[in-house]
């Protein structure tokens, strides 16, 4: 398996070159920044939740590597329509997948196209790129304005 099979597949490259849900979200109800000071990746994630706390719309903006951008694009595609609990469930599954664990086939099925990022676990330095904007959505839903990949990965920094 090569890096083009495991990471830089057409789907990922497509989403990194032309990310979906990219841009502002004027009627956002929740927002958070996600940044990874080690890579210099920096994103702003915005969500619009309805009165039942369902994510009705989502958008992101910022700059970073192909993996972080593609992951954000695919993730927002998937989370629109989910409740907060459903997002957290999906995040756990995705996190397990990119960390090299094998979630149940049903769980993976829920990830849909996001399963394309499953090969990332072989590149430990890049896992945090894949989950950066997930942390930002998590923070936004929790009412925090900021998420840093370094909080979780502080021990293997530098």
């Amino acid at each position: 398996m090569s890096v083009t099979d495991e990471i830089y597949q057409d789907l990922i490259l497509h989403h990194s070159r032309r990310p979906r849900h990219y841009g502002p979200l004027p009627d956002a109800t929740h927002a958070a920044a996600g940044d990874n000071p080690l890579c210099g990746d920096r994103y702003e994630v915005r969500l619009r939740l309805d009165e039942k706390s369902i994510i009705r719309d989502a958008a992101f903006e910022g700059s970073g590597c192909a993996i972080s951008k593609a992951s954000a694009s695919l993730m927002l595609d998937t989370v629109i329509g989910l409740s907060r609990d459903e997002f957290e469930e999906l995040f756990r599954t995705f996190h397990a997948l990119v960390s090299g664990e094998t979630p149940s086939p049903e769980a993976v099925a829920q990830l849909g196209k996001l399963a394309a990022l499953s090969g990332i676990w072989k590149y430990p330095a890049r896992v945090k790129c894949a989950i950066l904007c997930w942390h930002a959505v998590h923070s936004a839903l929790a009412g925090q304005a900021h998420a840093s990949s370094e909080e979780e990965f502080a021990s293997n920094s530098l």
Partner: peptide, 23 residues
């Protein structure tokens, strides 16, 4: 192209460079 993507792909070719802010 982000430097980290460059680093990962070059790494596969055995080319070891540093990508980042170099402290």
């Amino acid at each position: 192209i982000h430097p980290h993507d460059v680093g990962t792909i070059l790494g596969e070719d055995g080319v070891a460079i540093r990508a980042g802010h170099h402290c």
